[in-house]
């Protein structure tokens, strides 16, 4: 499933989507950045409630397919700037992490 297909299926908010056709191969959820770097694999969707600019750095160096900000979290202005600079797909949802990950598991 591509990033844009997922965004449509789950009616996600699109904050930035420079690479809509990237394939999502799995996912990881977490907010501790080092743990995310340890566990997340290239092509994964990363579900988090962190919204500072370090999220863009971690997503970029981990080759994440996209970042999904859960629970209605909006990205900081600096995160948006970094996402644009680094070509990161950045999506959002008002749902809480548990049901969101349940839906992702069903779809991916």
């Amino acid at each position: 499933m591509t990033v844009t297909e997922l965004a449509q299926q789950l009616s996600l908010t699109v904050f930035h989507m420079p690479e809509p056709q990237l394939e999502i191969t799995g996912g990881y959820t977490g907010d501790l950045l080092s743990r995310v770097m340890c566990r997340m694999k290239p092509g994964h969707i990363w579900v988090t409630i962190m919204s500072n600019q370090n999220v863009a750095a971690v997503a970029a160096l981990s080759d994440a397919a996209c970042v999904l900000l859960a629970e209605g979290v909006a990205p900081d202005e600096e995160l948006l700037i970094k996402a644009r600079e680094r070509g990161i797909n950045l999506l959002g949802s008002s749902r809480t992490v548990f049901p969101l990950c349940g839906e992702l598991s069903r779809l991916l």
Binding site: D31, L32, L33, S34, R35, C38, N52, N54
Partner: peptide, 15 residues
Amino acid sequence: DLGFGAGMGLPNMKR
């Protein structure tokens, strides 16, 4: 508060 301090930094570097 920024998401650091998980105690995984050096282990990640080793891995």
